[in-house]
Design a protein around this nucleic acid. Structure first.
Lengths: 195, 195
DNA sequence: CCGATTTCCTGATCCAGTTCATTGGAAACG
DNA sequence: CGTTTCCAATGAACTGGATCAGGAAATCGG
């Protein structure tokens, strides 16, 4: 339970909570250990949980008709991850969510989240803020993808999330940025040679 | 005020409202007429409003360093539009939001929305649902952009929003789909000839 | 109703980024 | 600790879609 304090802090940054509320919140989450390469969500199965990463790293990706991976989201400590289209509408997932390292997560079930939101204006606010920020974040990504070329997208990502660039495998980053691994490799070497 | 009933219906589809609440909601919105080609949001200015389209059509777009347009969102009747990154964080906008036709909108001010959310658990829920769905929608768009090629993106859009395809100029659609107008024109003619 | 401005179409050329193939090194694994 | 599997690097050939240029049709304001 001491681990869960990170989650409590995370929530407290966004809304005010009494001690009772902290307890009620934490009682809804289940701790789970996940080994590298293990899936917590798979296509065809409904994503019943939203997952808060306590330790480790994950990526969510889809596989297209030609068999290619496309990374939709990457999450490290203090981030959330799920297949939101599956979770939100409680329909079968289209994504894989896979641990990139041995990890520890806190899971909340869809029904428990719904109950929290219904019972407390407070928590409704918290999840509203989360959704708004995710939306704004995704919109920025759409803009980046439309306006920038491969090199600029890599540079932007590197500037915004240097820790993640170090930490996740290159194929995951390339497929997040929407380019082939070969091309990303070239971009990286171009830069380091100049320096 | 009779016009505003469309908005009331829109909200009632998502949450339950008493008559008093309907009135309180509608009193926060201002009716505005906008002529074709007029901007309701411009880069550099803070987007103070979320806009509900009663009649007409809008597009939100950014202009990149090379002077090219990129359409981020298109909205017709019963949809919302704004520069959400500007609105949410109350920072200067990066987008233009422009009327594609003579239009009528209902505007809510950031502060009024905040007050509504704070005073009523109800309205907090409504805006949470809106944000969640926008987020899910944007994620689907990210997936489409990563996994599909130009022709497939056009086909998908045509299948999902046939009315919009008919209604907005081709350059707006092309820049939404992330391709040149020339290429979109080619795709369209390819199809109609085959049929 | 007409001239002007937008919008749409078509062909020729070009390039950013892909694909395919190969290699070497580093983890993972019994 | 040898072997297998994964991952990054690099070279060569190829292509989806952009760009540029020209003109034809719609649409609009007056």
């Amino acid at each position: 339970m001491t681990d869960s304090l990170a989650l409590a802090e995370h929530v407290k940054k966004r809304i005010n909570l009494t001690d009772t509320e902290v307890n009620e919140l934490l009682s809804c989450f289940k701790l789970m250990k996940v080994r590298k390469r293990q899936f917590i969500i798979q296509p065809g199965f409904i994503a019943h949980h939203k997952n808060y990463v306590l330790k480790g790293a994950f990526r969510a990706y889809v596989v297209d008709d030609t068999g290619q991976d496309h990374t939709i989201q990457v999450s490290i400590e203090d981030w959330w991850i799920s297949d939101y289209n599956s979770y939100l509408y409680q329909k079968p997932a289209t994504m894989f969510v896979e641990a990139l390292e041995d990890s520890i997560i806190l899971q909340i079930h869809y029904n428990d989240e719904a109950r929290l939101k219904q019972d407390h204006h407070n928590f409704e606010t918290f999840f509203r803020i989360m959704a708004e920020r995710s939306m704004a974040h995704m919109q920025r990504r759409i803009i980046t993808n439309l306006t920038k070329n491969a090199e600029e997208r890599y540079q932007e990502f590197e500037a915004l999330y240097p820790e993640i660039v170090q930490r996740i495998p290159q194929y995951a980053l390339a497929s997040y940025l929407g380019m082939s691994t070969e091309y990303l490799s070239r971009l990286r070497n171009r830069r380091t040679k100049k320096t």
